[in-house]
């Protein structure tokens, strides 16, 4: 089940909405994406940073997991 651009846009909207009062969080997320694209960090690096950034937001973490390659997953604390 390959994700589409619309899925990415929808997820990004969800992040923006949840952190509407903390725009810095979304900016931090964009920084992580930039570093990933420039290959400053790899997939495990992204996972580490995103799991810290979205700590306490299991829905965002589960949404993010859908974009990870097989074998990678951020564990959600329950």
């Amino acid at each position: 089940q390959r994700l589409k651009v619309e899925d990415a846009l929808s997820y990004l909207d969800q992040v923006k909405l949840q952190f509407g009062s903390q725009p810095q969080v979304y900016n931090d997320f964009l920084d992580i994406m930039k570093e990933f694209k420039s290959q400053s960090i790899d997939t495990p690096g992204v996972i580490s940073r995103v799991s810290q950034l979205f700590k306490g937001h299991p829905d965002l973490i589960m949404g993010f997991n859908t974009f990870l390659p097989p074998g990678y997953k951020i564990e959600v604390q329950t």
């Binding site: 390959r2 994700l3 651009v5 990415a8 846009l9 997820y11 990004l12 997320f29 964009l30 994406m33 930039k34 990933f36 694209k37 997939t43 992204v46 859908t66 974009f67 990870l68 390659p69 074998g71 990678y72």
Partner: peptide
């Protein structure tokens, strides 16, 4: 390891475009 969907998410986040 390739992460095509993560790359797609990054591209959409940064440019709004498909890779």
């Amino acid at each position: 390891l390739a992460a095509p969907q993560l790359i797609m998410l990054a591209n959409v986040a940064l440019t709004g475009e498909v890779n």
